[in-house]
Amino acid sequence: MVLQGQEVRLADTITVNGTAYPIPDDPRVSLLDFLRQHIGLTGTKKGCDHGQCGACTVLVNGVRINSCLTLATMHDGDDVTTIEGLGTPEEPSALQRAFVEHDGYQCGYCTPGQICSATAMLEEIAAGWPSDASETLNGKVRLSSEEIRERMSGNLCRCGAYANIVAAIEDVAAGDRS
């Protein structure tokens, strides 16, 4: 966007899963609608469109956010990773494989958001970030079921596959530790 002759954009593009795409003209386009409707990456899902369900969770510069509550036009120069960028049917990521093995879904609609969210969550734990469920703010995070449930509370599953979602994440976290 040009303002009084000053170019303040970092770039004219958003990079998604390694490919650069032009910024949409209409500033109302959410990052979620940009992914789904402008560049055809429909893996990211629209649930509530109000930041309550987490189905739209993607990674922006490695950090998980609700793509429904941010404008695509605000993300010039940013690096977005969606479920399509985490793995493929032929080469799934560890979490994608674990969700299949543990049946961590029923209808599957929330699953891309769950997996993007869990991918970032494991990084956050590795970085030592505490959560509301952590006994202490400092020190190594002990990855209990309570920790996973608190850290994943921004991702709802209306089918109620939570037990298997937690099992899938625990499985991958255990692999990370070994």
Partner: peptide, 11 residues
Amino acid sequence: LAGATQQLRNK
């Protein structure tokens, strides 16, 4: 940490 969700606090 008692407020919102990780996704919202990140933004």
